[in-house]
């Protein structure tokens, strides 16, 4: 048979020292091409489309492997339980949960629902609040502040629950909105904040880590089934290594980013466990209630996740 080609697409830069998905893509390509006769062609930086489009292309087996984060929960709603704020108190707990039984079960569920096989999980990182008005240590400090959120209902519910005023604004408009005072603050992973210079427009950051965003390394199952068992084994192993590579690069850029924004004048606050608990108490009920309504019978995934996290946190 003719040697097969894997088209691998993602929306991050094509680079491996600072780009989590870029790093994951490159190591995946190196391992698979080294150990099989498959060819891997990389399509970084959104060359084939945004995340939603990449998911659709993988479902059609147009693009065989895609690395996506937020778009997954649109195709497989159960995955949105990962976005429940203050679910994971640290990245390592998230890794334990996703690499354990919960992650496997979710992958199986999403495979049945979408035709996409989750080969492994990477990470986009924890999201944190920044603002230009005052230091936020407790939910009470959020009172009356306007926060830009993505136009996604779950984020709107979360900020409302915390006592802030959510304002949905497109990403491209964000710098404008921050500098003209249309909103007081925003929320994003540290790497995104630093790389886009948002720390120059904002004075305070609170490392509350409200939402943990996972990366999904997905393969079209139609394509996966066309591979030999030996090829499948290499592809699956390469994806797990790629996910871990992405996580490590992500951790690296977050740690570096926290230091750099401080060096450039931003005040960074790390809340205590008790303070985080206070945030969780205000934000979770609203979001969980909203999600239960949205998910219908998929709502069982909320409970499954909470059990797994409790077990992993022991």
């Amino acid at each position: 048979a003719q040697a097969q080609t894997i088209r691998l697409a993602h929306v991050d830069p094509d680079e491996w020292t600072a780009s989590k998905k870029g790093a994951a893509a490159h190591i995946f390509k190196n391992i698979v091409e080294g150990e099989t006769d498959l060819t891997v062609e990389l399509f970084p930086a959104g060359a084939l489309g945004n995340e939603d489009e990449l998911v659709a292309q993988a479902q059609d087996n147009l693009t065989q492997v895609v690395l996506v984060s937020g778009a997954m929960s649109k195709a497989c709603p159960a995955a949105s339980v990962l976005d429940i704020p203050y679910t994971f108190s640290s990245a390592t707990i998230a890794w334990d949960v996703l690499d354990g039984d919960f992650g496997d079960a979710l992958a199986e569920h999403c495979l049945a629902q979408t035709g996409l096989r989750t080969l492994a999980y990477g990470e986009t990182g924890f999201r944190n609040f920044t603002n230009g008005t005052r230091e936020i240590r407790t939910p009470a400090d959020m009172e009356g502040l306007k926060f830009r959120v993505q136009p996604i209902p779950l984020y709107v519910e979360m900020v409302k629950g915390l006592g802030g005023e959510p304002t949905p604004i497109a990403w491209t408009e964000l710098p404008n909105a921050l500098s003209t005072g249309v909103v007081d603050g925003q929320e994003n992973p540290v790497g995104v904040i630093y790389n886009n210079g948002l720390h120059k427009l904002q004075k305070y950051m609170t490392l509350d880590g409200h939402v943990y965003a996972a990366d999904f390394i997905l393969i079209s199952d139609e394509f996966y089934q066309s591979l030999t068992p030996a090829q499948q084994a290499v592809v699956a192993r390469a994806a797990r290594i790629a996910g871990n590579m992405g996580r490590s690069i992500q951790q690296w850029s977050t740690a570096e980013g926290v230091n750099k924004v401080q060096a450039e004048g931003m005040q960074v606050y790390s809340p205590t466990a008790d303070e985080i608990a206070a945030f969780a108490e205000k934000a979770q009920p609203a979001v969980v209630e909203y999600l239960r309504g949205e998910l219908g019978e998929d709502a069982v995934w909320i409970d499954r996740l909470q059990e797994s996290v409790a077990a992993a946190s022991q």
Binding site: P151, V156, T167, A170
Partner: peptide
């Protein structure tokens, strides 16, 4: 957006 500081969520899509 520039007067009351609010805009509707469907104002772009």
């Amino acid at each position: 957006r520039y007067t009351v500081g609010q805009s509707v969520s469907w104002g772009e899509e």
